[in-house]
Design a protein around this nucleic acid. Structure first.
Lengths: 186, 186
DNA sequence: GTCTATAAACGGATAGAC
DNA sequence: GTCTATCCGTTTATAGAC
């Protein structure tokens, strides 16, 4: 792995663990085993490096989510696959957590990939929910976009519950609750 | 307002806006219009002051939530009142956001009031959901604790969606989606 | 109770040598 | 490309005067 790659990976980890405000260039360099000069040679500064890291994480998240969606089966089955996919629950969502970071929200450049990713996720789920309505799995009275927002929110909020309690159990409970509400009246 | 009170209020605001990691004693003092010596006279340090601030915010949050729950009406109506209550959506949840703060999660003392508050919220909602089942509003197959977790998660995650997009619309969509799933088949 | 002084480490870079 | 030196402000206090 190149120095540049190591710096990006090190930044990705630190952003996930400590957020943008809690991450210093020094900590990034140490974890990447790179010197000061090295970092400033490859990147313009903390923000520039963070942007590269966030974009890579966003890309990875889309790829992972897409796998759940492409699994086939009913709309309910695909939503269930997404909700139940393996997660490192206590670490939280590497993209979602950035929304609580004041410096990320204050910067259009840093917020853009976060916004795009979450938006993409909602669109994917809205498409699936719409199919579910067409197939008669979900009531016609439901709004696919709203259901998609509820699904994404349940996941993001599930991380909050889990981290508050220090256990993944609350995340799982929230997911099961949502699935029971979505379940086609078989 | 006493100096001590101003320090706590100033800390509450900063914790809400910037989190624990992003808040410095200096910023607290300036906003409270208090000197260095003043702050260290009244409090043991940053963590001690943060604890006082978090406890006050937690207390306030319980009181606000309790109002929605005590409004009377059906279980669905009380849940709806809670979900639709006025919120400063783009500011996020002053308690929930702390779960993304590494130093808060690392400290049992700081995490305790956060955990307690979210736990209390889940219990309240679980009680209401249970009543709803007894009254035939909700299907007997639903698990009240799971539904409660889903409700709290939708709210917490709604803040994430809203802050990502820079608009409260996504929060509202998530709430409407959840309400449509909960709606008694009238 | 509040003020000012002091301090060692960190934050986020820039400059120039190699 | 990487290294070391330097820089100015901030962080999180402690000490002691008033």
């Amino acid at each position: 792995m190149s120095t540049s790659d190591r710096l990006i990976e090190s930044t990705r980890e630190l952003l996930w663990e400590r957020g943008y405000v809690g991450t210093s260039p020094k900590a990034i360099q140490q974890r990447a085993d790179a010197g000061q000069g090295s970092m400033y040679h490859h990147f313009g500064g903390k923000q520039d490096l963070a942007l590269a890291a966030i974009e890579r994480t966003a890309q990875e998240m889309r790829a992972t989510a897409a796998k759940s969606f492409d699994g086939g089966g009913s709309a309910y089955a695909r939503i269930e696959a997404y909700l139940r996919r393996e997660r490192d629950v206590l670490r939280g969502c590497p993209i979602g957590r950035l929304t609580m970071d004041p410096d990320v929200i204050a910067s259009d450049a840093l917020r853009a990939p976060v916004d795009d990713t979450i938006d993409w996720l909602r669109e994917q789920l809205a498409g699936i929910a719409e199919e579910g309505k067409e197939q008669g799995e979900f009531a016609p009275s439901l709004d696919a976009e709203e259901i998609a927002a509820t699904i994404v929110a349940t996941v993001q909020g599930g991380y909050v519950l889990a981290r508050a309690s220090g256990s993944p159990a609350a995340f799982d409970a929230g997911v099961r609750g949502l699935l029971s509400l979505l379940a086609p009246a078989a």
